[in-house]
Amino acid sequence: MTLAKRIVPCLDVDQGRVVKGVKFVDIRDAGNPVEIAQRYDRAGADEITFLDITASSDGRETLVQVVEAVASEVFMPLTVGGGIRTPADIRRMLNAGADKVGINTAAIDNPDFVHQAAQRFGSQCIVVAIDAKRVSGADEPSRWEVFTHGGRRPTGIDAVSWAQRMAASGAGEILLTSMDRDGTREGFDISLTRAVSDAVPVPVIASGGVGCLQHLVEGVVGGGADAVLAASIFHFGEHTIAEAKAYMAAQGVVVRLAEDP
């Protein structure tokens, strides 16, 4: 008996519909969030993450309704990220049926927010999302910086020490996205994932760049991630969750398989 590595499909939601951008351009509609969540539930996904990419606040209310609808039909862990800026935002999402919320920009604007949120709601529901980009040259030791605004705006903050600081502030989990790899299908940034995973005592979800099943294995084995997040390889039916788990299990990764008890 041991803790299984998790496979987490990520649904980008805009105005209540699931979309997935390639490097945040060329967005395609990939369907209805409740139907997709039910499909992933039946397929044996370990969690589902909703990332709200809606710009307007009206659209945000739509996401609350989406979470409520999904949580009434699907009895598995749900994480919601995007636009979480205040304790009231967290409360609204938890009340709607989310188990965890992802905090990204709001933590950078006000690092104490994560501490306050963890004190009030518990670390178990606070995920700090970090978008990181490699800033070191080819001949230098690896260094990654935290970026905001879809990878366009540098913050000057070192990604590894930021992850440590957020874990110390009460984050219960780190969702680590490589902005260099996101949408490329070239695989996770394994050295980034390993650097953060080794640096923090809390679980790390690797994100950004999955293009094939071997990438999922690399995230766990090479990167030391506790969970792997992917979108397009699942949304467009290239692979099922069951295929991904069977593949990972065959490589010696402990996963929760449908044929298990």
Partner: peptide, 23 residues
Amino acid sequence: GKVPHMGWNQVRQTRAHPLWRGI
């Protein structure tokens, strides 16, 4: 392991109980 213990783990049933029926 990492803390929190977060995710799916197996439960060994140490004895019979009505709540384990069918599980």
